[in-house]
Design a protein around this nucleic acid. Structure first.
Lengths: 226, 226
DNA sequence: AAGTATTTTAAGCCAAAATTAACATCTTTC
DNA sequence: GAAAGATGTTAATTTTGGCTTAAAATACTT
């Protein structure tokens, strides 16, 4: 279990030193820089578990850093700090790819708790297309190697290809595509697995959907072991 | 692209209906329940991308639901709602496994932005594997060094590998896999031990299942002492 | 409203797993 | 070392869960 390392971009030195003091006590290693320019340089370096960015900085702002980091496809969790507590600001930051937003003034205890909550989750998936083996699934157009999937097919297949080689319980597949409708039945899933297999076959893919009796289904490209 | 599906537990019907209306506009499917009891039942069902829990509920509270969900090892993102804006409350919720915390009153736009921020990261996965000697047993896929076990085989083998070198009474093995069925017989266990031994053999494992006459079976890697 | 695509339903079929039972083998005790 | 009881093995049978289809119902499009 490694302790957390964060980058903290904040121009108010007095605030920063107080915060850093408490973060260190909580076993969080902090690299602090006071300017957006320096922040930008460090933010894209690997090794940080989280970036904490003040929005209002002279010159390069926290906002700029956020956009640059995300435009490079990096998925480091980002928490934005700002004196602006307006909902609009929060929404804009979150939609631009920030993971959390904390308005100033804040208690460091809350910052620490939010940092921990952020870093216990795995990195972000930004790509609009999911790949596995020889498959390319275009999420927004619901195209699997070019052939279109229907809505239900897509719901189910997305779950499978997001977790290849992992069993998806039938109940979960059912819940995903049909919600908690009372009338839903296992046979729905079976029917659609049949459809999906047919499409995989027609594509000549090496990937197949395997049944694990009593558990569920998984997408795999392994050959059967005899 | 699948739309988000969330569970929303909130006892204030007026607030809930306003929020739900806006969430639906943002293409978020909402299952709403007004009581903690119902919430608890649904929260552990698969299929939700996020749980939104009001803390203050009569009877079972959002707090209780949070703890129950996490104690079951589920990793669904959870956002807590509360009229309490105290830092302590926030910290406690986040440390108990919540992913975000929003104080009431809030703007739905912020809720939506936070939901999106939470769900664009892929779910944590926790697949447990048990190890002993040269064996690796993948619980969720029921794979023993790659080869699949059937349901009954899995029940029995799990008990053995969880307590290696320890005798598992035949009666306990029987109870585990067949419950208290009147029709069950010792021969069931014997048959399945035979199957399991065959699979261990095929894997060329150094581990074997040893019989202790009149007592039961144990998984061991020790050589026979002659 | 017609025509098309998609989803739901239902039935028969197939394969895997569980059960049964007959018989073989091992262990203990005298 | 023979008998009795316990355990092991195997093949047949039964049961269960899953697959596949085609037709019926529903949802979309124009």
């Amino acid at each position: 279990m490694h302790s957390m390392r964060i980058l903290y971009v904040e121009d108010e030195a007095y605030l920063a030193s107080a915060v850093i003091h408490l973060l260190k006590k909580a076993d969080i290693a902090v690299d602090w820089v006071a300017s957006g320019e320096e922040g930008l340089k460090l933010a894209t370096k690997p090794g940080y578990d989280c970036l904490v960015l003040d929005i209002m900085l002279p010159g390069v702002s926290g906002w700029d850093i956020l956009k640059e980091v995300r435009s490079q496809g990096l998925t480091t969790p980002i928490l934005m700090l700002s004196a602006l507590a307006e909902v609009d600001d929060k929404v804009r930051a979150l939609e631009a790819g920030a993971d959390d937003y904390l308005a100033k003034p804040f208690k460091t205890a809350e910052l620490i708790a939010r940092l921990k909550a952020l870093t216990r989750r795995p990195p972000l998936q930004t790509d609009e297309t999911l790949r596995y083996a020889d498959l390319e699934y275009d999420l927004s157009n619901r195209l699997l190697n070019g052939t279109p999937l229907t809505a239900k097919e897509a719901e189910l297949f997305e779950l499978l290809i997001r977790h290849p080689e992992q069993i998806q319980p039938k109940a979960q597949l059912l819940a995903r595509a049909w919600g908690n409708e009372a009338a839903s039945s296992d046979n729905y899933v079976e029917v659609y697995m049949s459809y999906l297999r047919k499409k995989l076959e027609q594509l000549g893919s090496s990937a197949t959907i395997k049944t694990i009796r009593n558990l569920g289904y998984k997408l795999t490209s392994e050959k059967d072991v005899s």
